[in-house]
Amino acid sequence: MIKTEAAPSNSGLFKLWYHRMASPVWFYRISGKLLPWLWALFAVLLVTGLYGGLVTAPADYQQGDSFRIIYVHVPAAWLSMFVYMVMAVSGAIALIWRIKLAEMVLVSCAPIGASFTFIALVTGSLWGKPMWGTWWVWDARMTSELILLFLYLGVIGLYSAIEDKRMASRAVAILALVGIVNIPIIHYSVEWWNTLHQGATVTKFDKPSIHIDMLIPLLLMAGAFKVFFAISLLLRTRNELLERELPRKWVKQLVEENDG
């Protein structure tokens, strides 16, 4: 590290980082530079994951090829919970430190989370019909996942219903934090209650009860979905930022740069 007279101290560095993190201009520029890399990473993970899952992974001994739905169902279900955690943590940051960027992340998470939840529910249904013999049962796993969808829709609805966006963010943050009780319920539902849905395969303390050739594509797909979440979140947060800060000088500069 090169030491100069102007080099800030450690705590100064942290402050700088902290202010930059919360600074809209900085976020906008950095995310713009990051996005192409994320797209590239997503493409690699998606192509290898899909090829592994649909072509090279062997068929299941009981479920045959229908088990391949796992490669979209399980990553979507994991992400539906992960996105909620990100949303709730952003909500807490928005409530406590009043950081505007956290508010924007909070509201940007909701439609993405709702999408993943929707995918998990629909693909689960498409898997349940041929295997279990039913599109839907009111077991604890499925019901709690459906409630998760309603929580996301509630966040979207509440945010759009309140005119003042700063107040709306606060209201939505509280709703997101209250709803977090649902997350452990979803995860442990298969243990706490007698559900039709089977227990956890990968996310348990034991070693995963899935053959390694089937597991690797699953992890690749989970990685792809996670990167996709990052991409979609950045895109939405950037829009939110532009919308809220439209009159500001940095947006003006941005427009001028685009013109030139």
Partner: peptide
């Protein structure tokens, strides 16, 4: 009135199961 199949959380190819 209804019969549902319950499967477990194990996934493996048939050769391994055998």
């Amino acid at each position: 009135a209804e019969v549902l199949a319950k499967h477990d959380e194990n996934y493996m190819p048939p050769e391994v199961a055998d």
